[in-house]
Computed example of a mutant assay.
Amino acid sequence: MKKTLKLSLVMLLAFTMILAGCGNNKPANNSGSSTEGGSTEASSGDNTASTKSNAKIGLVTDIGGVNDKSFNQSAWEALEALNSESGIEHKYLQSGSSADYIPNLNQFVQGGYDLTWAIGFDLGDATKQVADANPNAKLAIIDSVVDAPNVQSVTFAENEGSFLVGVVAGLTTKTNKIGFIGGAESPVIKRFEVGFIAGVKAANPDATVTPTYAGAYDKPDIGKSLASQLYDSGADIIFPAAGQTGNGVFNEATARNKAGGATKVWVIGVDKDQSLEFGDEVTLTSMMKRVDVAVKTITQEVIDGKFEGGKITTLTLKDDGVGLPETSKANLSQEVLDKVEEYKQKIISGEITVPAE
């Protein structure tokens, strides 16, 4: 039976993650060998933990890859932190295409891993199939709900966090033209888009948002090209929700600002605090999505023998599961920050209901 539960330890664990250094923006070691199907693997058993755990945790990425500087990387960094704290054995398999999802999941499940993570909406069907075929295995998935008694599912209110960065964009734009670049169209990315547009319109009814989709999460060159088109059309802020594809947006914006154009352009980061990777000079703010907290919380449940299969967790603005990072203060005035806080409280109280589709 499904159970819906909020993570009561989100804020505490978020603080713990900061102390543990999960803000580290170094990419995970991805120099492992190739496996059949085009996937890539890497593992780590090195640790300095004082309290050891024998748990073995596997993580399967979507095609965006573990070094996407976004949510796959956040998930892996959570396991890296747990390795340092408790000595878990952890390994990832990077999927080269959707054909790799089931083989990669099966490699961990059949290898006797204590928990297998599926990172991304696209892995939903594969996770269901593997879970049904292996009822004694424990699995967990980010961004999708899998109806199986041995799977924990975690989703996020991306629309709520995106509304807040939309407020920032609406109050910051000089041209009243703003862009949104999604990866592949899905319910998850649609929540980003519609929440963002709603936030822009709430803060600045005169501003327009042009949404476009790259059709992929692993194509920085496409992201760069789409960003170029949007900036050429007058947009001065772009919000990409597109994994590695979004890195190309940062590259385009950085190049334009270095060239000294008449209008400074900005990018709004996604999933992680992307100013840590690309710098405050181009990152206006970021829509944080605490994948790291979710991965760490549920993995710790496995370590402690408290895993609950069939549980569905939705992390919202109220849970601190989405929101803006502290580094937003680098570029945003107190007036803008106060306005963001005002809208945040209205969303939490229910005064504002943010559209999700």
Score class of each variant (00 low, 15 high):
residue 268 I to S: 04
residue 284 L to C: 05
residue 280 D to K: 09
residue 277 E to L: 08
residue 217 Y to E: 07
residue 261 G to C: 13
residue 248 G to H: 01
residue 283 T to N: 09
residue 261 G to L: 12
residue 232 D to F: 14
residue 236 D to Y: 10
residue 270 V to Y: 02
residue 268 I to M: 11
residue 221 D to T: 05
residue 252 E to T: 12
residue 256 R to D: 09
residue 251 N to V: 13
residue 241 A to D: 10
residue 257 N to T: 14
residue 253 A to P: 03
residue 250 F to G: 08
residue 253 A to I: 02
residue 250 F to I: 08
residue 223 G to V: 05
residue 281 E to K: 11
residue 228 S to Y: 13
residue 221 D to P: 03
residue 253 A to R: 04
residue 278 F to Y: 14
residue 291 V to M: 09
residue 228 S to A: 15
residue 285 T to G: 02
residue 221 D to L: 14
residue 271 D to G: 05
residue 242 A to C: 11
residue 266 W to Q: 02
residue 289 K to W: 03
residue 253 A to N: 12
residue 212 T to I: 08
residue 264 K to R: 15
residue 286 S to V: 12
residue 277 E to T: 15
residue 227 A to Y: 05
residue 239 F to N: 01
residue 225 S to G: 06
residue 234 G to N: 08
residue 213 Y to C: 05
residue 276 L to G: 07
residue 257 N to M: 03
residue 220 P to G: 13
residue 267 V to I: 11
residue 225 S to D: 13
residue 258 K to R: 12
residue 233 S to P: 10
residue 255 A to P: 13
residue 217 Y to D: 05
residue 278 F to T: 06
residue 251 N to M: 14
residue 288 M to A: 01
residue 223 G to F: 00
residue 228 S to Q: 15
residue 273 D to W: 07
residue 292 D to K: 00
residue 272 K to P: 03
residue 285 T to H: 01
residue 219 K to V: 05
residue 273 D to F: 03
residue 282 V to S: 05
residue 222 I to T: 13
residue 268 I to P: 00
residue 214 A to Q: 00
residue 226 L to P: 01
residue 257 N to I: 01
residue 227 A to L: 01
residue 292 D to N: 12
residue 242 A to K: 06
residue 264 K to Q: 14
residue 287 M to K: 08
residue 235 A to Y: 02
residue 280 D to F: 15
residue 258 K to C: 06
residue 237 I to H: 07
residue 228 S to R: 11
residue 226 L to C: 04
residue 275 S to M: 06
residue 214 A to Y: 04
